[in-house]
Design a protein around this nucleic acid. Structure first.
Length: 130
DNA sequence: GCCAACGTTGGC
DNA sequence: GCCAACGTTGGC
């Protein structure tokens, strides 16, 4: 899940402990959020500034309607601060890794919420010294 | 600041 | 249903 740190950062989530992941207005991203189950884990990626995966969050509440969305089409999930990566994994690290060439972060760069495969997850955790 | 890659909107 | 025009995201 991506957020610009100027807008909502990993440090901010650390303080808040839990937050509603709002403002997603893209159907693909919404569908990905609707597929999330309570207890699932997600990477927190700083887009634009930093361009790196900084930590792991846990889905604390499954999708529910976004009260700010008058169309009634979009949803929120609640995410909980879980674990920072010991070493942030940058976009260029990911691009340089032969087994991460297919990751959605690279292949569909504009999407803000995207799936990560088991293998990709494991590789990135290792790169992050977890 | 520029541009590629999409997504959305609206005319036909 | 198609497609041109426009808007947005995010890397560089």
């Amino acid at each position: 899940m991506k957020s610009e740190p100027d807008c909502y950062s990993w440090d901010r989530l650390k303080q808040d402990k839990i937050t509603a992941w709002d403002d997603v207005r893209n159907y693909q991203a919404r569908n990905n959020m609707m597929a999330m189950k309570r207890g699932d884990l997600a990477f927190f990626y700083h887009s634009n500034v930093g361009k790196e995966i900084v930590g792991i969050m846990e889905i604390a509440r499954e999708h529910y309607p976004d009260p700010e969305d008058e169309s009634g089409k979009f949803v929120l999930v609640d995410v909980k601060y879980k674990t920072p990566l010991k070493t942030p994994v940058t976009l260029s690290d990911i691009k340089a890794h032969p087994k991460l060439q297919e990751i959605k972060l690279i292949r569909q760069s504009r999407l803000s919420v995207m799936p990560v495969s088991q293998e990709e997850w494991a590789i990135i955790c290792r790169m992050g010294d977890l």
